[in-house]
Computed example of a mutant assay.
Amino acid sequence: MNSRFRQVALIGKYQTVAGGSQGSRARPALADIAAFLQSQGCAVVVEEQTATNAGLDGYPVLDLAAIGQQCDLGLVVGGDGTMLGIGRKLASSGVPLIGINHGRLGFMTDIPFGSFETVLPPMLHGEYEEEKRQLMHARVLRQGNCVFDTLAMNDVVVHRGNSAGMVELRVEVDGHFVANQRADGLIIATPTGSTAYSLSAGGPILHPAIAGWVLAPIAPHTLSNRPIVLSSQSEVAIEIASDREAIANFDMQSLSALHHGDRIIVRRSEHSVRFLHPRGWSYFDTLRQKLHWNEGITSS
Rank of each mutant, 00 (worst) to 15 (best):
R274Y: 05
S299E: 12
S224L: 11
E168A: 12
N53E: 14
I210H: 00
L215Q: 08
A241S: 15
A29M: 15
L73V: 01
R25E: 15
V214R: 03
D72N: 15
G144H: 09
H221K: 12
T150V: 10
Q69D: 14
V157K: 04
E270Q: 13
V214M: 09
P278M: 09
V214F: 00
L276N: 07
R139V: 15
A189H: 02
A183D: 09
R268N: 06
L37D: 06
G55R: 12
S269C: 03
R170I: 15
L287Q: 08
M83Y: 10
D80P: 08
D110N: 11
L120N: 08
L151K: 09
P227A: 13
D72R: 05
R170D: 11
V171A: 03
G212F: 02
S39I: 04
G280L: 12
H207P: 02
G202I: 13
G19T: 10
I210R: 01
R25D: 06
R142L: 04
L120D: 03
L215C: 00
W281R: 03
V173R: 13
L135D: 11
M153C: 01
P204I: 14
G58D: 07
I247Q: 13
P204E: 11
H271Y: 15
P217C: 10
F177C: 10
H292G: 01
F116A: 11
T222A: 10
E117K: 15
G58W: 14
D110Q: 09
N162D: 13
V45N: 03
